[in-house]
Simulated assay, not measured.
Amino acid sequence: MKDGKPWVGDQVHDEATNRKAIVTDVRGGSVYVLRHVWGGGDTWEAEDPEQLTVTAPAGERPHHAQNLKTPDQEGPPHMGRTEYYNDPHAPKANTLIPASNLLVVDDSGAILLQRRRDTGQWALPGGAQDIGETAAECAVRECLEEIGIIAEITGFLGVCSNPHHIVAYTDGEIRQQYENTYIGRPTGGEPTINDEADGVRFVHPADLDQYDIHASMRQQIGDYLAGTYPYLG
């Protein structure tokens, strides 16, 4: 909360729609952008803070400490995760696993994003590198596995190894993020949702501000758009 009013990251009850939601943005200090607590569905806006009751302030939200599962999702629930970025209260990491992301750009310049079920935020496809594959092969594989798009590498965006980017999982793993991010173009496949992503789409750069994108991922996209890469840090 901020000045007694809901703020970004707070879990609230929206009386107007009778839905539980997460505040993802506050525009002009008065327009609240909300998404469902499960991360699925479209966002909506609330212009009256009086209709929003904070049920869990940011940092105390229930989904930080439990597995997430959408009501219509089949199969086992996801492992819960809490992501910390330059947060002095982050727990100490106990693992470091190399991972790869792929920033896929189509002929119009739109960027391929997926909406993660576990956080509700939009992100580049990516994941942990397997034994026996290169970092670039990992990026291509993860893109196909996660969102159904076949892509080829066209460039290298950078290494992101900020020791203050921590992801804590409910199984006890606390991972320091280490990501190699590549640039690619689509060559086949169809955008497909799965048990990790409930939304997949190409987004034009002019529309990126309308999407809830984690700060670390937004930095990588920003480096690409500004041409300030490769980023080595």
Rank of each mutant, 00 (worst) to 15 (best):
Phe156Leu: 12
Thr53Gln: 14
Val105Asp: 03
Pro57Leu: 03
Tyr85Thr: 09
Asp87Lys: 15
Gly172Ile: 12
Trp122Pro: 01
Thr170Trp: 04
Thr134Met: 09
Pro125Tyr: 02
Tyr178Gly: 04
Gln219Asp: 14
Lys2Ile: 06
Pro88Trp: 15
Ile150Glu: 14
Gly132His: 09
His165Trp: 11
Val203Trp: 04
Val140His: 00
Tyr32Lys: 02
Cys143Lys: 00
Met217Gln: 05
Glu145Met: 11
Pro205Asp: 13
Val104Glu: 03
Pro62Tyr: 10
Pro76Arg: 15
Val203Arg: 04
Tyr84Thr: 02
Tyr32Ala: 01
Ile166Gly: 00
Asp72Met: 06
Asp10Ser: 03
Ile221Asp: 02
Tyr182Ala: 00
Val140Leu: 15
Gly188Trp: 09
Tyr231Val: 15
Pro57Lys: 05
Thr43Cys: 12
Glu137Arg: 08
Leu225Val: 09
His36Pro: 01
Gly132Pro: 01
Ala46Glu: 15
Leu52Met: 06
Gln114Ala: 15
His165Ala: 15
His64Met: 12
Asn18Ile: 12
Leu208Asn: 05
Lys69Glu: 06
Gln66Trp: 10
Pro49Gln: 02
Gln121Tyr: 08
His36Lys: 08
Gln219Ser: 13
Pro91Met: 15
Ala16Asn: 14
Thr119Met: 08
Val33His: 12
Gly227Trp: 15
Ile111Glu: 00
Ala58Val: 07
Gly155Thr: 11
Val159Tyr: 10
Asp42Leu: 09
Glu45Phe: 10
Gly188Thr: 12
Gly126Pro: 01
Arg61Thr: 14
Arg61Ser: 12
Ala151Trp: 04
